[in-house]
Write a protein that binds this DNA or RNA. Structure first.
Lengths: 134, 134
DNA sequence: TCCTAAAAGGACTGTGATGGTCCCTTTATA
DNA sequence: TATAAAGGGACCATCACAGTCCTTTTAGGA
């Protein structure tokens, strides 16, 4: 259980690469894809999600490409993961109150809630700066 | 990400129900399935896995059924979840050393390792006794 | 203004995991 | 020996995942 999908894996690779570039340098998708060894068309979808989430800024046309929307120390691993994988929810119960009819008498509920918060906290403590070698 | 499958959910329901029964009482699969509202044929598979993992003991034939293999305070939620879902591995990297070719230079690696250990610890701290109302 | 470079976005597809069902076998009891 | 139960194998439908492909939009440059 709890496995990151390939998409999430690719997403992290791509964004970490971008964070490792000079911050004012606009990177081509094709360059990123080649550098981190991910199919370009697939990575395109991922970066579209980043763009919508406000993690990267994109520029179209000649000389276009991607750039981090904020400095690396202000982007957390949690943000990156949730941008492409959706919210972290160990169990459907945890999602929204009332979503689970067993809600009121489900003793396992609070356990998943703790797990969820702990994991989110751990991921939120890591920034892209921590993940680049420089 | 990190979502428990339906199988894991059912597994927990079933085993918690069993832990809530008198400990010397052999429960029929059909009773358990009805009580926790899970298709009996599916729950059968789950309890077979429990049986192999040594979480429950099974008896065949007339008067047969299932019973916890150990007292509820000695069975952890971690055991139950891993019995049916397999090991908790947030990222393929974390599995075995060398499994990931990016291993040596993957800065994200240690993060997933921490997440994995934290989650396992939290689940290992909860026993079936904690999950039954009595 | 046209051509070209790039991202945006929609539609489509193969594959594998999930969530089951069905049926036969084995084991035990009465 | 009939019956009650779990064990186990085979099968199947659906859906998410992991991509591909093609068209559209946006922007620069000649």
């Amino acid at each position: 259980m709890m496995e990151l999908t390939r998409k999430g894996d690719y997403a992290i690779r791509g964004i970490v690469y971008l964070a490792g570039q000079p911050l004012d340098r606009v990177s081509l998708l094709s360059d990123i894809a080649a550098a981190v060894d991910v199919p370009q068309t697939f990575l395109a979808k991922i970066f579209q999600q980043f763009s919508k989430s406000g993690i990267v800024k994109s520029y179209r046309g000649t000389g276009g490409g991607f750039i981090l929307a904020r400095p690396p120390e202000q982007i957390t691993l949690l943000e990156v993961v949730e941008a492409v994988e959706g919210p972290i929810t160990p169990n459907r119960c945890v999602m929204a109150p009332g979503e689970c009819e067993r809600d009121s008498f489900c003793t396992v509920h609070p356990v998943w809630d703790r797990v969820k918060r702990q994991v989110r906290t751990m991921l939120a403590e890591i920034s892209l700066k921590d993940l680049t070698c420089g």
